[in-house]
């Protein structure tokens, strides 16, 4: 990895995560390219979500989780002693697998982040809410009912509301953990278009189980696979990065047999 300043939003260096004494993912070294979409693929339980959560320190909320290695964000280690995880999460936003709007109005959902940052001015909030909803391609559907509860929207709309909510704090990176897995094909298509759109301004990292989706939306793909080791009384299973490259390359000419098997749907 040559030092192309600004080209990489995040660089992972030998990152491992343990839950208690059990490893979940080990020795991951790879970059996340700025203003591109990076997709993680891999079998269930290989630690994709865990790795994603490393990038905005959401793992801190799990008491047993322990992270080693370096996660560089603009050259700064996110796990350095002087880093405030709250600040990290403002700059690296997250969208979850299951849409999780707050039990509040659409407006209050989007305004939540800016309010945390101390924005009180009504006009400024109105402007942020409108802009975020437009960016998330939800504005036209909800512009006349901003007072309606976020929970009253359809699943696909809820997920776009969650994206709008994340955009409202103007993060640089958006992490999305299987954002379409709970949605119908049409909503999925809308969100995929939205991701393509957003990648002009934001760095996006997504986890997906859907090979077609990875090919449709992402610029870079990382394949993570499971390693096992028998220990007395228990079996350790953890994920390792098998292959990383541009999506086109990786799907057309996988370098590893394991990758080829996985994208062809042959599981060992």
């Amino acid at each position: 990895m040559t030092n192309l300043n600004g080209r990489y939003a995040i660089q992972l260096h030998d990152v491992s995560v343990f839950y208690g004494h059990k490893p979940a993912i080990q020795h991951v070294t790879m970059p996340v390219v700025s203003r591109k979409i990076t997709a993680y693929i891999g079998p269930s339980g290989c630690g994709k979500s865990t790795l994603l959560r490393v990038m905005n320190r959401m793992n801190d909320l799990v008491p047993s989780a322990r992270v080693s290695g370096e996660v560089l964000f603009h050259g700064q280690n996110l796990y350095g002693p002087e880093i405030d995880p709250v600040e990290v999460r403002r700059r690296v936003g997250m969208v979850f697998q299951k849409p999780n709007p707050f039990p509040k109005s659409i407006y209050d959902n989007v305004a939540y982040g800016p309010r945390l940052l101390g924005v009180r001015d009504r006009a400024a909030l109105d402007q942020i809410v409108a802009q975020s909803l437009k960016q998330a391609a939800l504005w036209d559907e909800v512009r006349h009912e901003l007072k309606k509860s976020g929970l009253a929207l359809s699943g696909g709309q809820q997920q776009r509301l969650c994206i709008a909510r994340a955009l409202a704090v103007e993060p640089e990176v958006i992490l999305m953990d299987e954002p379409c897995s709970a949605l119908d094909p049409i909503s999925t298509q809308k969100i995929e278009e939205l991701m393509r759109d957003l990648s002009r301004h934001y760095t996006i990292v997504i986890v997906t189980h859907n090979m077609q989706q990875a090919q449709r939306v992402s610029d870079y793909t990382a394949f993570i696979s499971v390693r096992k080791e028998e220990r007395p009384n228990e079996e350790y299973r953890w994920g390792e990065l098998v292959e990383y490259g541009s999506t086109m390359e990786l799907f057309a000419h996988p370098q590893q047999e394991e990758t080829a098997d996985h994208i062809a749907g042959r599981f060992g």
């Binding site: 905005n56 909320l61 709250v86 403002r90 936003g93 979850f96 999780n100 709007p101 939540y112 704090v169």
Partner: peptide, 18 residues
């Protein structure tokens, strides 16, 4: 209170008390 609500809040940069 569902864990997902807390997650959403922390994910937006809320402190524990917020």
């Amino acid at each position: 209170v569902p864990w997902s609500i807390r997650e959403a809040s922390y994910g937006l940069g809320a402190t524990r008390w917020q």
